[in-house]
Design a protein around this nucleic acid. Structure first.
Length: 406
RNA sequence: GCCGGGGUCGCGUAGCGGCAAUCGCUCCAGUCUGUAAAACUGGCGGCCGUAAGGCCUUCGUAGGUUCGAGUCCUACUCCCGGCACCA
């Protein structure tokens, strides 16, 4: 199928921006893409977590770029591979998902990636599930597949080397993961695959297989990995992800919590700002501009991308009010109480601002508790309960007390 | 099957038979600032007590020894490594 020939600029952006490496080579990719011929490119994702985060979004946005240029996008949900567990970058063996978990996670994916890929229009992205073909393979097929690779090739993988060194187990089934992923490519007969740099090995196994089975040179694009807001690997277990489904204020707040040193990296990987604009931001920070201001641009831009301008603005105003100025948020949880007077510690537990009395006391002793704006320092204090009273514990925990008159 | 290592606060760890129990991370709070960034300080099992303090519960499970057990013994259980068996 013919599509419009990309401009030099589009092509360069596509192949250089937020791309870590290209296989077999950049020249090969240029050749494949400049002719105005539609290629099919896919991204495979394990439904191991139900949330798509900004790290996943880097790759998805790159896919969108391909889509906008007229290329065919396939989003493959690894509902079958998820059952086995990708051994990638795990020192220990990954927990295998139950079919229920896989199903549940896969379900929410489409909604989330609709924010990033176009599922309508005349070139809609397509979703596929690899259980469709992988579950049909029999043992004979599997052996045939496995015969394309040597154990040495599999063991080449850094992570396996690491495990051998540390005397950690490598289970046989872990070799099947790249094999299955490779089979996905063959089955879909795609022209290209994209993924994070952590997927390089798996994607290259697919390249090898396509070459030997279909005599086809599959293009492989790897995207750099976005680090979490704290600078560590972005991972759900480290609790440092920013999810595309986060509420606007959460998203905005989490982005503001990104370390200063990561601002530029986040701008480059999570926004549509071009290289010159980002260079501009970098210079501004270097010249002494308050990084906070740039971070607000980042937070706003990203929040706007996922939630729209209005909600992003609301989130920004809320952040300025609550966090920067220390005011009360507009939305506060309400708690009904039918007492007229309560000990401060009991009150904190009752309205859910503390999990235990000991914790509540700690908060009071740490000067973290305010009632209607005045700080409460005595754990023995009795508090008169008044309707609409606002209790604050720490910077972010608020509750409004509603007197439940009987 | 045999040998060895291990299961302690969310995670990772320390712990001569004698203090809810080390350290790092996360986390929470305060100060400051420029934000929920950075830095600094403090906290981080529960209940009672204004407090000093008291009590209770916790180191895989169940027993035992002991004035006293995370620490010693026995059984069980789960995890990890090696060897053996096997082709």
């Amino acid at each position: 199928m013919k599509i419009e020939t990309p401009t030099e600029k589009q092509l360069n952006h596509l192949l250089d921006y937020n791309i870590a490496s290209l296989y077999p080579s950049r020249e090969f990719a240029v050749e494949a893409l400049k002719g105005g011929k539609q290629i099919s490119i896919y991204l495979g994702v394990d439904p191991s977590s139900s949330n798509i985060h900004l790290g996943n979004a880097v790759v998805l946005r790159k896919l969108r770029e391909f889509q906008n240029l007229g290329h065919k996008i396939i989003f493959l949900i690894g509902d079958f591979t998820g059952l086995i567990g990708d051994p990638t970058d795990k020192t220990a063996v990954r927990k295998q998902l139950t079919p229920e978990e896989v199903k549940k996670n896969a379900k929410t994916y489409k909604e989330q990636i609709s924010l990033l890929l176009d599922f309508d229009g005349d070139n809609p992205a397509e979703i596929k599930f690899n259980s469709k073909w992988l579950s049909k393979l029999n043992f004979e097929d599997l052996i045939g597949l496995a015969a394309n690779f040597t154990v040495q090739q599999m063991l080449e993988r850094d992570m396996f080397q690491e495990r051998i060194k540390n005397e950690k187990p490598i289970y046989l089934h872990e070799f099947f993961y790249p094999l299955m992923q490779a089979y996905d490519c063959v089955e879909m007969n795609v022209d290209a695959e994209i993924g994070g740099t952590d997927q390089t090995f798996n994607m290259l196994v697919g390249r090898t297989l396509m070459k030997s089975v279909l005599d086809k040179e599959k293009l492989v694009f790897t995207c750099p990995l976005l680090v979490g807001s704290d600078g560590h690997k972005m991972s759900k277990s480290l609790n440092n992800t920013i999810d595309v489904f986060d509420t606007p204020s959460d998203m905005y707040g989490k982005l503001m919590a990104v370390k200063d040193e990561l601002i530029i990296e986040y701008l480059r990987m999570c926004t549509d700002y071009g290289a010159e604009e980002i260079e501009n931001f970098r210079e501004q920070i270097e010249e002494g501009e308050n990084p906070m201001e740039i971070k607000k641009v980042l937070a706003f831009t990203v929040t706007k991308f996922y939630h729209g301008e209005n909600k992003a603005q609301t989130a920004e105003k809320e952040f300025e009010r609550v966090v920067q100025k220390g005011d009360t948020p507009t939305e506060i949880a309400e708690v009904r109480i039918d007492e007229t007077e309560m000990n401060i510690v009991d009150l904190l537990v009752r309205i859910g601002l503390a999990n235990s009395k000991a914790e509540a006391k700690r908060l009071v002793n740490q000067d973290a508790v305010e009632i209607d704006g005045s700080r409460e320092r005595e754990t023995a204090a009795l508090v008169k309960i008044t309707n609409g009273m606002i209790v604050k514990a720490g910077k972010r925990k608020f509750a409004r007390v509603i007197v439940d008159g009987k």
